[in-house]
């Protein structure tokens, strides 16, 4: 497919999705909203973790920071400023984490991100209890579901666009080289640390924004709600199912899994995490490179 046709098609789909809330019931707008949120999260996650193969387990740390920033600042300044602040804080946090761990071997990064959400949650709780004397905050913003949905849809489109642009640029090529072999990449003149850091910061900032935009959905926010580790887990499993190395992979994984999880969490609320875990193990076993790569293999196999 030519690039122009693909863009025209994507734009048409985007318009249809944007108009959808005007015609469908509110419940389905809510489902679309959640789905768009996870598509964005998974795509943003794969932006960094896909090509570099550095598994980040800290999605919810950034997501929660975004949501909490909105909770704290929503009455103090106009909404666009709040979003900007959230993005700034997410970026700063990503810089600190990235600068201290990305110079080293990948395993340090995984370990650090593994506990980051718990750390941020504890620090925020401590701060709220000891410094501001509040536990839990209210978000009163004049948004309905579809307003949030439109914002998320725009963010999702931008994220996919960024992912597409990076995949075609020198940066993307360098990133693939880093993922294949860091030592070789470094010898070929790639500034490995800087590239990893840059991508991690971009990815983390988008994730923070997803959290910030979704915050008004909750109305009431406290650390244990917004720093729920399941968010990290779902993002990871979605990106992996679709294939983290491809532009559309995370989207392909996020849409069916989100619907499945919606159904599961209503039908089997108690067994949710077991099913989630088993499904995840299955995916790692059967389709380590994702559905898209699997389909391609099958097609090639059928032809040969």
């Amino acid at each position: 497919m030519k690039v122009q046709t693909a863009f025209a098609l994507a734009a048409a789909v985007l318009v249809v999705l944007a108009l959808a809330p005007l015609f469908i019931p509110d419940y389905w707008t809510g489902v679309l909203l959640g789905m768009t949120g996870y598509v964005t999260l998974a795509t943003a996650w794969a932006l960094f973790s896909g090509p570099t193969r550095y598994v980040s387990l800290a999605t919810v740390a950034f997501f929660g920071v975004g949501a909490y920033t909105v909770a704290v600042l929503n009455e103090a300044m106009p909404y666009p400023m709040v979003l900007l602040c959230a993005a700034g804080i997410g970026m700063a946090l990503a810089l600190v984490v990235g600068l201290s761990t990305l110079r080293l071997a990948g395993v340090y990064f995984v370990i650090f991100t593994f506990g980051l959400a718990e750390l941020v949650r504890q620090v925020v709780s401590w701060w709220e209890v000891n410094v501001t004397y509040t536990m839990g905050r209210y978000v009163f913003l004049p948004f309905e579901g579809r307003h949030i949905y439109w914002q998320l849809l725009a963010l999702a489109a931008v994220t996919l666009l960024i992912s597409w642009a990076i995949g075609r640029s020198r940066l993307g090529l360098a990133l693939k080289a880093v993922g294949d072999d860091e030592t070789v990449a470094a010898h070929a003149g790639v500034d490995v640390t800087r590239i990893k850091l840059l991508l991690f910061v971009i990815s983390a900032t988008i994730i923070t924004l997803v959290g910030a935009i979704q915050a008004p959905r909750w109305t009431y926010i406290e650390p244990s709600i917004v720093f729920n580790p399941t968010v990290s887990f779902m993002t990871l499993i979605m990106a992996l199912l679709g294939g983290a190395m491809r532009l559309w992979g995370p989207l392909v994984g996020a849409v069916p899994l989100f619907l499945l999880f919606e159904w599961l969490s209503v039908s089997f609320p108690d067994h949710f995490s077991i099913i989630l875990g088993l499904l995840f193990i299955l995916i790692v076993f059967v389709m380590p490179n994702g559905v898209l790569a699997k389909l391609e293999d099958l097609r090639k196999g059928g032809r040969a």
Binding site: L276, G277, V284
Partner: peptide, 25 residues
């Protein structure tokens, strides 16, 4: 070794949720 590291991290991450889910029940 790198591939095993990534795979084992992912699989045991899944296992974490399974064990936790069983304990919660």
């Amino acid at each position: 070794e790198g591939a095993l590291e990534v795979d084992s991290i992912l699989v045991t991450f899944g296992l974490l949720f399974v064990i936790q889910g069983v304990l919660l029940i």
